[in-house]
């Protein structure tokens, strides 16, 4: 494939340019969030929240139709509500947070499907779950760009607190009261990125764009300050090449992007210099 072929679809079609710009922006914020999700041992949280978004988005669709602000608000409230409910159940009952999330997200998914049925209008469930990057309109694009910029700004501001809270939470709590605030801001960003992403590449596919580049990056560096931009870069390249693949092979764009990220993850798993399978592994990898 020549360089011309890699760029031609974007030069020729405005919808491809919007998809590329939006997808790259989303990858730039979702990748670093994924790195922190892994470091905070919350890797499955993104998947659970992505399901949790559905009833809110379905309700918004029922009431307001295909309105971007309404879908965003509905998804945001539902996603944050589920994360908050899981944390509350854990605090009140001692049930582990992953277990309370695992219990809540099938409820959310089923409620979402039921609400879509009740709505009586046709919103393709497959579109909601797996999206279509090629349907990114100007409003969605601005939403994605705004979300990415906002996320990166908040991440930069709360970077130290998030890192120390993941590394040594007791020490952070002894010197600062910023830990819980940083955690809440971080969760909000995860939900916001999933919500804005599900409209472009689908609720389930966006989790792949968040977690796969982050997991792959872990096999290439042991430095947080390298892992964060590296995850963004891997995600951005996968968006670009995934869109090209989807264009020429007439395949759905979301799965193309995520499968490319998955292929790079598998390559990293085998060939990555940090505890990759081809290297000896003196330490068990936990992040």
């Amino acid at each position: 494939m020549t360089p011309d072929l890699l760029w031609a679809p974007f030069g020729e079609f405005a919808f491809m340019r919007r998809a590329l710009l939006g997808g790259v922006a989303l990858a730039c914020s979702a990748g670093p969030l994924g790195v922190f999700l892994i470091l905070r041992r919350m890797s499955l949280m993104g998947d659970a929240i992505a399901h949790g978004i559905l009833p809110g988005a379905a309700l918004a669709f029922w009431l307001f139709g295909l309105s971007l602000p309404a879908l965003t608000a509905g998804g945001l409230v539902a996603g944050l509500g589920m994360a908050g409910a899981a944390a509350w159940v854990t605090r009140r009952t001692g049930l582990r947070e992953d277990a309370s999330l695992a219990a809540l997200y099938p409820i959310s998914l089923a409620s979402g499907v039921l609400l879509l049925g009740l709505a009586g209008r046709k919103l393709d469930l497959l579109h909601l779950l797996f999206g279509s990057a090629l349907a990114v309109d100007t409003a969605t694009l601005y939403g994605m760009l705004g979300t990415a910029l906002f996320s990166l700004a908040v991440l930069a501001l709360s970077y130290r607190a998030l890192a120390l809270d993941s590394l040594d939470p007791l020490f952070l709590r002894s010197i600062s009261r910023f830990g819980p605030l940083a955690h809440a801001a971080f969760l909000t960003l995860v939900v916001l990125n999933l919500v804005i992403g599900f409209q472009a590449i689908g609720a389930l596919m966006v989790v792949g764009l968040m977690m796969l580049p982050a997991a792959a990056a872990r096999f290439w560096s042991r430095r947080l300050l390298i892992l964060l931009p590296l995850a963004a870069l891997i995600g951005a390249v996968c968006v670009w090449l995934g869109l090209v693949l989807s264009f020429y092979a007439s395949l759905p764009s979301g799965p193309c992007i995520v499968l490319l990220a998955g292929a790079f993850y598998l390559f990293s798993l085998v060939a990555g210099p940090v505890n990759g399978l081809l290297r000896s592994t003196p330490f068990p990898i936990t992040v």
Partner: peptide, 18 residues
Amino acid sequence: GGVSYLPQQQHVDRQFPI
């Protein structure tokens, strides 16, 4: 600021990438 606390080692994530 006035108080500093040394936690036990098991509270520190040894695999944290820094």
